[in-house]
Amino acid sequence: MTAMRRFLANGWLSAYAFLYVVFLYLPVIFLPIFSVNTAATPKFPLSGFTLKWYEDLPRTPALLDAAWNSLVVGVSAAILSTVLGILAARSITRYRYPGRRAINGLIMAPLVLPEIIVAISLLLVILQLGLSLSLFTVVLGHVLVCIPYSMTVLTAGFEGFDRSLEEASADLGESAFGTFRRVTLPMVAPAIISSLLVCFTISLDEFLIAFFLTGTEATLPIYIWGQLRFASKLPGVLALGTLLLAASFLLMTIAEILRRRAAKRTQNEGGLYA
């Protein structure tokens, strides 16, 4: 009887979980569906299959510029925020000192602040300093919002890391830098690559900060934003959006696999020696 009731309860929960996943994915799936539809407006029934919207993409110079800008901004933001993330995550997981939690809280703050606040406050300071808005200022903003994500990935990779390995290396005569390069780094390399991919993806998809902090150069989301005003451009935007979705999906899947591998590696080591 109880077993029966439990099965029923689980059945409801499983059905709910299934519906929830459908709710999460369904809206996103319409983008690829209508990007290969012949009609210019996205509505049912579908009118026919075509790849012409995709074929038009490489023939749009403004789009290619935006893609290049996004690549430059994404790579710079990913490298900068991961370097800053490594320093902070290492300090947080390895050392104990007063003010540690407060500093960590401050670094993680952009995660919970409304983006518009981050964007306009940076804009005010940049304009006050008389700096001109450019892709560089976009990178500055993106690094700020990427660091918390980088920290999350990296602290998970650094935690559970067995300190005795580093001590052994130091006792065997390695310098602090040598120990980091030859013992710590190989252990945490998957987490670092994962952080790079996560930050690149965030920067690639980020709109609001780029919208406020860029000068005349557009990134891909800003290009999309501009195109949304024209109803006739919608299929092209859907095609571009589909490519961006695929890129994000691919990058995040690789990042997740690496992150898990990093976690498993440090945990196994801890388990063996603890």
């Binding site: 300090s91 050392y95 500093i103 300071v125 700020l144 660091i147």
Partner: peptide, 28 residues
């Protein structure tokens, strides 16, 4: 001097957040 070392390590990130987050909010 473990605290010194730990603080030195986090200071670039900390300064980044101070200059690009705290200072701008104060300006606002």
């Amino acid at each position: 001097s473990e605290p010194v070392q730990g603080f030195a390590l986090i200071s670039p990130t900390f300064l980044y957040a101070l200059i690009l987050l705290v200072l701008p909010i104060l300006v606002v």
